[in-house]
Design a protein around this nucleic acid. Structure first.
Lengths: 355, 355
DNA sequence: CTGAAAGCGCTTACAG
DNA sequence: CTGAAAGCGCTTACAG
């Protein structure tokens, strides 16, 4: 039997069928495992296909079945530790489930809405959002198609969306609690830009707890939440607040906190004798010898687990009972499941009496 | 005119056509911009489609045109700084070019070959590999389909593949050069696992340069290239080599180098008086006050630029002149474009005379 | 400028 | 166990 082998890039199931001397339908069955096929026939087809270098065209298959094994993921700068970590976990799970992630990269949060709209073109099973925010209309558009919508560390803004986030206000409050228990009274918050949801919520929780004690904190906003910004804050602190230095510092992320510590090194101030510092994120560096920063760790595993659970529930049950069970944390009035961050005590705070 | 609006998830161009009272073909033209269509008609169709929440099904469109605007990206743990950074750049460029990245996550390097095979199912324009290695056969299979194959920081193993990498041996040699110029004579290399291409190449370049001076280095391999591993090496160093401590340490990545510095803090040894340390990667932390690590920075922008250039060339010219121009670096015998890393001098090495 | 029709590469009832 | 045929939702010549 002779035949012109087509260029691999153009080969179709029909070419494989011809080469294996079977019908095109059998080729499909050989690969999908659906429908009856004699074991020998299957073997032969698989062998021929391998020679030609052919695999079923997933695009075409998805069209027929009306269901592509794709999931949209909206993300942005991966240099933010938590996002890279979260994404690694998500991607690994998708790989295990034979779901192919289609990435949508938002250069700025403003682009997220447009990307959310673009996801629709690909008829994916749903979308995981790890950047920007989701409008009610957009959420509606996605959910009404039967897709899932999972928002990580941000509100889903829709009763049927799944949304899970670090309980930032609780973390902020716990930071305040800790510093108050140490007897601290002059507070400084190293915050991020005012449009950073996480930083704002952490600051809010911190301030609220202080307010209960009739105290207030100075809040410094930084454009970027980097170590450099934290270091600059330390310099500013020594200059502007030299009359009454803060004795309790809450940095809404670790990077700024680490920089702040560095900025204080030549000042003669000692930590935690003169002042305590609490961060947020538990970066690897926070555990390094020169820092030993007390901080809060985001329960990323719990959050990723929640998202994966929701996706799984969506897959197995399109009818879709409301999946937002509160087992992972408290459910806020906004429908977000809030997971408590974990306090990691190190050397930038004192041990208090009741421990 | 009345009609049952279909569930959004199931709406097709036909439904939009019906609602706008035009043929289905016109709906396609309204969105694609191909073919003639009256501006008013187009407006109307767009409006109706927006109401229904319909967008062309990219899967179906790709089938017809035989060309999906997709590109496969093979990656792995994003916590490795360089990969997250590189991926951010790549994804942003794809977004700008209206290419949709399909991610393939390799939990271990051994899975990469399987993932490479899986990319074929999606008929993407090509594949970018940032993990594991590419076999000659697999490269052949991909390239013969007319797809591009771009390997980042690893060999492409095929004359038609594009491959660009940090010149690790040159970096290792430069590290040796630096330490030799300082008059160092007893060398220790903090290396990674033996199957880490980058670490091995860096070590090789380092050793080769030393050999020229008739010197050798002790090489310690670590399972994971973390700060913790580096710290352990310092302890081991103080214990096992106390008789003749190394005076020149080359850490094949910064993380281990930083940990090594931490491990030495209580030893009384001072850097760079007693010993010099050179790292690789230029992590943000390497510039922090307690470290100030001299290191080499990978030319990631150049490398990403090279990959993007190759993809662009592939898009505009399927005929495919060999794109591997050496403007970005030296071309190795393996066809890899090697880009020199950038030395960043800080305080863990001495200033030498000839500067 | 618009529409009817063919066809992209598959999967899946339906016959045999 | 196997094959012929319909059809997934589009795009694109081809007529009109």
């Amino acid at each position: 039997m002779t035949f012109r082998r087509p260029a691999a890039g153009r080969a179709t199931s029909r070419d494989v069928a011809r080469a294996a001397d079977v019908s095109q339908a059998l080729v499909s069955r050989a690969f999908s495992g659906n429908g009856r096929i004699a074991p020998e026939t299957r073997e032969r087809i698989l062998k021929v296909a391998a020679e030609i270098g052919w695999r079923p065209n997933a695009l075409a298959a998805s069209m027929v079945t009306g269901d592509a094994p794709l999931v949209s993921v909206i993300t942005t700068r991966l240099s933010f530790e938590w996002r890279a970590q979260v994404l690694s976990h998500l991607l690994k799970a998708f790989e295990d489930w034979n779901l192919q992630p289609l990435l949508f990269y938002a250069d700025s949060d403003r682009e997220v809405d447009r990307l959310l709209a673009e996801t629709i073109s690909w008829r994916t099973r749903g979308v995981v959002v790890t950047a920007g925010s989701v409008s009610r209309e957009r959420a509606d558009a996605i959910l009404s198609r039967g897709q899932f919508l999972a928002a990580l560390n941000r509100p889903g803004n829709h009763p049927d969306a799944f949304s899970i986030a670090t309980d930032n206000p609780a973390g902020g409050a716990a930071a305040a609690e800790l510093l108050l228990a140490e007897g601290r009274r002059r507070f400084l918050v190293l915050a991020g830009p005012t449009d950073s949801w996480a930083s704002t919520e952490r600051t809010r929780g911190f301030a609220a707890r202080l307010a209960q004690a009739g105290l207030v904190a100075t809040v410094w906003h930084n454009t970027s939440m980097t170590a450099g910004a934290g270091k600059d804050c330390a310099a500013r602190c020594l200059k502007e607040l030299s009359g009454s230095l803060p004795d309790g510092v809450f940095s809404t992320n670790d990077a700024m906190g680490l920089g702040f510590i560095d900025g204080l090194r030549s000042s003669g101030l000692s930590i935690p004798e003169d002042l305590s510092i609490v961060g947020f994120d538990n970066l690897p560096a926070s555990d390094w010898t020169p820092y030993q920063l007390t901080t809060f760790e985001q329960p990323l595993d719990v959050m990723v687990g929640g998202v994966l659970g929701h996706i799984q529930a969506h897959q197995s049950d399109e009818a879709g009972e409301p999946t937002a069970c509160s087992s992972q944390g408290r459910v806020g009035g906004d429908g977000v499941i809030y997971c408590a961050p974990l306090l990691v005590r190190r050397a930038t705070t004192r041990r208090t009496n009741n421990e």
